[in-house]
């Protein structure tokens, strides 16, 4: 079976300011793909959370590598995959390297990001691959 081709692919330098851009793009593609208006806030927030996490781990370990977002507009589901390039990172556990207290306070000493993603995305899969961590989320679409 041929791999599913992303409708939109986005790569960005791991800077917090670009997370907002990723949120805006994801929301626009989701709207166009038929995700109900009531779910768009959830898409926006969940994609932002996944991108924020990826930016955080890239800044710690590989600041020159871009974060990758793939948006797939399928027949039944709108799917988003956010990939980082930090292998051996335990996505739902402790950070792989020591984090400054400031960063920990800002970004997740409570691991709130994963709680938000799990609470918002209709379907979530977190995979740790040799290349890095992939967070895949999807929502239903309505096609006319």
């Amino acid at each position: 079976m041929a791999p599913q081709i992303a409708t939109v692919e986005l790569t960005f330098s791991p800077l917090p300011v670009h997370v907002r851009t990723a949120r805006l793009v994801a929301t626009a593609v989701a709207r166009r793909g038929g995700v109900e208006e009531a779910l768009l806030d959830e898409v926006r927030l969940a994609v932002g959370e996944a991108c924020s996490r990826a930016v955080e781990v890239h800044q710690q370990q590989c600041p020159a590598e871009p974060v990758r977002v793939e948006l797939r507009d399928g027949a039944d589901r709108f799917e988003v995959m956010v990939s980082d390039r930090v292998p051996n990172d335990d996505p739902a556990g402790e950070a792989a390297t020591e984090v400054s207290p400031d960063l920990a306070e800002l970004n997740g000493d409570l691991n709130l990001g994963f709680a938000v993603i799990a609470g918002l995305a209709d379907d979530v899969d977190i995979a740790s691959t040799p290349a890095g961590v992939e967070i895949t989320m999807s929502w239903p679409v309505k096609k006319d």
Binding site: L45, L106, N107, L110, V116
Partner: peptide
């Protein structure tokens, strides 16, 4: 207009 877990972390801090 928008709040994510980073904002929650700041409020908890």
């Amino acid at each position: 207009e928008f709040l994510d877990s980073t904002g929650l972390g700041v409020l908890v801090g």
